[in-house]
Nucleic acid binder design. Structure first.
Lengths: 201, 201
DNA sequence: CCTTTAAGCGGACCTCGGTCCGTTTTGTTG
DNA sequence: CAACAAAACGGACCGAGGTCCGCTTAAAGG
């Protein structure tokens, strides 16, 4: 995925063609039989390509799945970076935070299986490019709310991001059967509690 | 692990003996070469036992690793359920929450590799017995703080639990190099923000 | 158009988690 | 003690992720 590589070296013609084929095949297989049944060899075969090629292009299974989510994630990124308010700039930071979380919640719920399957290994959950972009954005919005000087913005941001973890969303909506409105209300509540000065208890 | 089984059917003599052997062998191997190098066959071999036996007893690799953490986890549980204040009953709920998180943070940091490796599959992170016990305890303490009627205790508790996720702790301490004091201060801040009525923004 | 070279390719191969099933052991009952 | 059923055992087996390396091919330079 070029998401992690800051410099996107252009692919050779055949490589680009195979990459497109692989993504298409993978998307089709996921739609047909669910992401759980997706095997790397299956994708390679369906794309009429060698297995090694899949790994060369996407690194590992997680990389392939993240590439499948790339479009969605890119759209989200441009929306909250440069799109219309309240997600994009123009609205007050608190509103933007509200909108950010609600959008993320919906987007994750819509493609939950894919987001769950694409969750990287424990040690990489916080270093993937999409995560970092989201995280830095939340940090920025938090700072714009004028937090008290004793507020640890990074830790608050991590807490907020934790609420948007696909694994948690899946648990709450599927195992616990919570409706999405409840999750969104919970998000707004969390945001409201997180901004502003520390409460004196 | 009997942690998930409410009724602990007593093991046959040979089974109990093999279980002990396996745990001992696994602990030794982990200490010698790190949890990353631990393979199920390796444990079986070191315990002079068949591979199938390991899986019969512990279900899967995660189950074995969780069993390795069982002692620690049990001690923690009895400490916050029936131990001395402020972790146990006797202290006000806010103090107990503070103590709970700080203890969890320390305990996780001390055996971080093991906790990371024992992290169950995405869909089971929230259903493991130790998690549920911790979660319900946090819920209880939150309710004892007299939350406002519009506070969603379960969601707040999940947020708090998210802060204690080993993956997050590992990221913050290892990749970001945050000292434990900062994490603990962040926990207390989060707790203080989480209790009490919703702020009016 | 020919040469060159580095990127790309493919599939045999390895490892390891997890399953299966025929055999063995335990402990209970008569 | 003998018989029996249930539990446990063990290791062959399977599937899938990931690696390796000799071969192929795109594309840049002469």
């Amino acid at each position: 995925m070029q998401l992690t590589a800051p410099e996107a070296a252009p692919l050779r013609a055949d490589a680009a063609r195979n990459r497109a084929r692989l993504l298409e095949a993978a998307a089709r297989l996921v739609e047909e039989q669910g992401v759980a049944r997706l095997t790397m060899e299956g994708v390679a075969c369906a794309a009429a390509v060698g297995k090694g090629t899949v790994f060369r292009r996407f690194g590992d299974r997680t990389g392939l799945l993240m590439a499948l989510l790339d479009h969605t994630e890119q759209r989200f990124q441009t929306a909250f970076i440069s799109g219309p308010a309240p997600l994009g700039p123009g609205a007050p930071p608190l509103e933007r935070l509200h909108a950010f979380g609600c959008h993320a919640l919906r987007q994750t719920s819509e493609q939950l299986d894919l987001y769950l399957a694409a969750e990287p290994e424990v040690t990489r959950r916080f270093t993937s490019a999409p995560y970092r972009v989201r995280f830095m954005h939340v940090c920025m919005l938090l700072r714009q709310t004028g937090p008290g000087p004793d507020t640890d913005v990074e830790l608050v941001a991590q807490t907020l991001m934790g609420y948007l973890d696909p694994a948690l969303i899946g648990h709450l909506t599927r195992q616990r059967g919570m409706p999405s409105e409840r999750l969104e209300a919970g998000w707004r509540d969390l945001v409201d509690r997180s901004v502003g000065p520390r409460p004196v208890v």
